[in-house]
Design a protein around this nucleic acid. Structure first.
Lengths: 136, 136
DNA sequence: CTTAAGTTTTACGTTTACGTTAATGTCATT
DNA sequence: AATGACATTAACGTAAACGTAAAACTTAAG
C-alpha cells in the first residue's frame, strides 16, 4: 500500500493569511471574533486556526459591510446559517429571513435608481462637454 | 385685475418638517449642512429654509447612506450635480462618475448574490420545517 | 404683547468599528 | 537553543456620525 500523502487537509489558514487575502487587518478579524461573527479553533499554543467555513463567513461579513449592513445585522443574518433547532425557532428564522430578503430587494431597487441617476448625469455632462469642445 | 393668491410658492420647509418627513433628527440635518451636503437659505431671523431642491438632496443623502456610502462619498457624488465648470473639470467629474457607476453596479451584483444566498437558506429551512411537521 | 413651540449655536458625550502600542508567547528554521 | 516572524491579550486612542443638553433667539397664535 502506497504511502498516503501527508496532506490530509491543509485547508486551514492563519489569521494573517486571511487578513492578507481579504485586505483587512488582523485586528479586524479578532474584533469580528470578539463580536461572535467568527469562532475559529485554536492550536495547542492558543493560536487561531481558520477553516474554509470561517473563510466563507469572513467573505460574507465583508460583503455585508460593503452593502451598508452593520456588524450586528450581519451577525443576525449569519446566525440563520446555524439554526439547528426546533420548528418554532425555524419559523422565527424564516420570518426574519423574509424581512431581510425584502430589505435586500429594496436596496437593489434603490441602487438601480441611483444608477439611473448617475447615467443621466453622465449624459448631461457629455452633452455639455461636446458643446464646449465645438465652440473651441 | 384679480388679486393673485398670496401663495406664490410655499414650496419650502422648516428643519423639523424635513426631519419628521424623513424620520431623522434635526441635529442630523444640521450636521449634513455642516459637512456641506446641504446649504439651505435663511430667514431674516437666521432660521433655515429648505427648498424642494434641498429636499431632493436630502433624499439622495439618505439613500446613499442606506446603501453603505459614507457621507464623504455622498458629498462627492452630489457635487457632480453642481458642476458648472470648464471642460477639464467636467472631464474629471465624468471620470469619477464612471468609477462610481462601476462601484454601484458591483454593489447590485453583490446584493443579488446575497439575495440568492438568502433564498437558498430559505429553501433549506422550509424543507427542514416540513420534515419536522410530518414526523409529528 | 405675551406665550408656547420651534430654532440657533456651542460644546461635550456616545456608539460603532476598528487602529495602535505594549508586553508576552508561539512556531519554524537554523 | 537561539533567532526572526508571526500570535496573543489588554488597553487606550480615534474617526465618523450623530445624541444630548444648555442658553438664547424667532416665529406664529391668541
Amino acid at each position: 500500500m502506497p504511502k498516503k500523502t501527508q496532506r490530509k487537509e491543509r485547508e486551514t489558514y492563519t489569521i494573517s493569511e486571511l487578513a492578507r487575502e481579504f485586505d483587512i487587518s488582523t485586528r479586524t478579524i479578532r474584533y469580528y471574533e470578539e463580536l461572535g461573527l467568527l469562532s475559529p479553533e485554536r492550536t495547542s499554543g492558543n493560536q487561531r486556526i481558520f477553516t474554509k467555513r470561517d473563510k466563507t463567513r469572513l467573505k460574507l461579513i465583508i460583503r455585508g459591510k460593503r452593502l451598508g449592513f452593520s456588524l450586528n445585522e450581519i451577525k443576525e443574518m449569519i446566525e440563520m446559517y446555524d439554526v439547528a433547532g426546533e420548528t418554532e425557532q425555524i419559523k422565527l428564522t424564516l420570518k426574519y429571513g423574509e424581512k431581510k430578503l425584502k430589505e435586500i430587494e429594496e436596496k437593489i431597487k434603490e441602487l438601480e435608481m441611483l444608477r439611473e441617476d448617475m447615467l443621466s448625469i453622465r449624459e448631461i455632462l457629455i452633452k455639455r462637454l461636446k458643446e464646449l469642445e465645438s465652440k473651441k
